[in-house]
Simulated scan of single mutants.
Amino acid sequence: MGPAEVARHIEGITAHEISLAKNRHITLAKLNKAITDVVNAFARVAVRLLRLLYGCQRRSPRGAAATRPPSMTRS
């Protein structure tokens, strides 16, 4: 979404004002850090979800077969 489209949706502000704010406050370093934060947060959520679904199998007494979901175990 560019400055012109944002300005169309917000009363009392111009595309020029949006562009100036963007140019002053957004840098490549800040953008890369934000991307890294989002990716890391998603990874943490995914790990928690997998642990919730399959249980935490860190100390399994039966070896590697116990860490597989039931649908993947060999018969």
Rank of each mutant, 00 (worst) to 15 (best):
M1P: 14
M1H: 11
G2K: 11
G2P: 02
E5W: 04
E5N: 07
V6T: 10
A7T: 02
A7E: 03
R8S: 07
R8D: 08
R8T: 05
R8H: 06
I10P: 08
I10C: 04
E11H: 07
E11Y: 00
I13M: 06
S19D: 04
S19A: 07
L20D: 00
L20S: 02
K22R: 11
K22G: 02
N23T: 04
H25S: 13
H25P: 01
H25W: 09
H25I: 07
H25E: 10
T27C: 04
T27P: 07
T27D: 00
L28P: 05
L28S: 12
A29H: 08
L31W: 09
K33M: 10
I35C: 04
T36R: 11
D37W: 05
D37I: 09
D37R: 08
V38I: 14
V39H: 05
V39F: 07
N40E: 14
A41D: 15
A41P: 04
A41V: 07
A43H: 09
A43K: 12
A43I: 14
A43C: 09
R44W: 05
V45C: 10
V45M: 12
V45N: 12
V45Y: 11
A46C: 06
V47N: 12
V47T: 14
R48S: 13
R48E: 15
L50P: 05
L50N: 13
R51E: 13
R51F: 02
R51K: 14
L52P: 01
L52W: 13
L53E: 13
L53N: 07
Y54A: 01
Y54S: 00
Y54Q: 04
G55V: 11
Q57C: 10
R58L: 11
S60M: 15
R62E: 11
G63N: 03
G63Q: 06
G63C: 03
A64P: 06
A64D: 11
A65D: 09
A65L: 04
A66S: 15
T67R: 15
R68I: 02
S71H: 10
T73E: 12
T73V: 15
R74L: 14
S75P: 15
S75M: 07
S75Q: 14
